[in-house]
């Protein structure tokens, strides 16, 4: 699976990246994780509030950091 973390570099964006990497590791998923910081590219995803998570070219959520529990459920459900 292909995971993108869209974030301009704010604190919440770093939190989301850490949480995502931990969840992927604990679920033992085979995933490519990419951090997107370019605002033009972030905007082209239709995202206006960072951080956001894109899984397999689909924006899953934007503008918030979910709890570790919710994030794990989202990743496991894919």
């Amino acid at each position: 699976m292909d995971i993108k973390i869209l974030g301009t570099g704010c604190k919440k964006c770093q939190t989301l990246e850490t949480l995502t990497r931990n969840a992927v590791a604990s679920l033992e998923l085979d995933a490519d994780i990419e951090k997107v910081t370019d605002p033009g590219e972030i905007a082209s995803w239709g995202v206006m509030a960072t951080p956001a998570l894109v899984i397999d070219d689909k924006v899953v959520f934007a503008g918030r950091v979910p709890s570790e529990h919710d994030l794990t459920a989202i990743l496991a459900g894919k």
Partner: peptide, 17 residues
């Protein structure tokens, strides 16, 4: 609107585009 100035740039592009 809940808005963080750290999102000002993607929001600007998103609005104008």
């Amino acid at each position: 609107t809940p808005f963080c100035s750290c999102s000002a740039v993607p929001a600007f592009i998103g609005f104008v585009a």
